[in-house]
């Protein structure tokens, strides 16, 4: 096969894998009626995006961006995505916890955590 083609595939494969991961999460969110599963799906989706950032920050042959962990000629990976993702992870957990609180309340109010049952209880209008 064409070497350029394979170069492209290898160069981009990590991104593709990350995208597949995100899409699995997206699919779960959209199709699973169970609210907890939806939240898990959302987490997977978010983790996928986080992974995307980390992937783009990776430099070949680089090490963790901490001084002193190597000699003078060390190549460091890009620290900026790491910084951003630390924030993103925390935002993610905040969202998750709020979502879980809502699930608890929903369970109290409806006695179920299945979306389609809630829908039925409200006469399909929700």
């Amino acid at each position: 096969m064409n070497p350029v083609f394979w170069q492209t595939v290898w160069g981009l494969l990590p991104y593709w894998l990350v995208i597949v991961l995100m899409m699995i999460g997206l699919h779960v969110v959209m199709t699973k009626p169970n609210l907890i599963k939806k939240i898990i799906g959302l987490n997977v989706f978010q983790t996928g995006v986080i992974m995307f950032y980390i992937t783009l920050g990776k430099v070949d042959g680089g090490t963790a961006p901490i001084f002193g962990s190597g000699g003078d000629e060390v190549v460091y990976s890009n620290p900026v995505p790491h910084v951003l993702m630390l924030t993103a992870i925390v935002v993610g957990i905040a969202t998750t916890s709020l979502a879980l609180a809502l699930v608890v309340r929903l369970h109290e109010a409806y006695g179920t955590i299945e979306e389609d049952q809630i829908r039925r209880l409200e006469g399909d209008e929700v």
Partner: peptide
């Protein structure tokens, strides 16, 4: 593996 140790800890 991708050098993001801090993120890994947090995650």
């Amino acid at each position: 593996v991708m050098d993001a140790v801090d993120v890994a800890f947090t995650e």
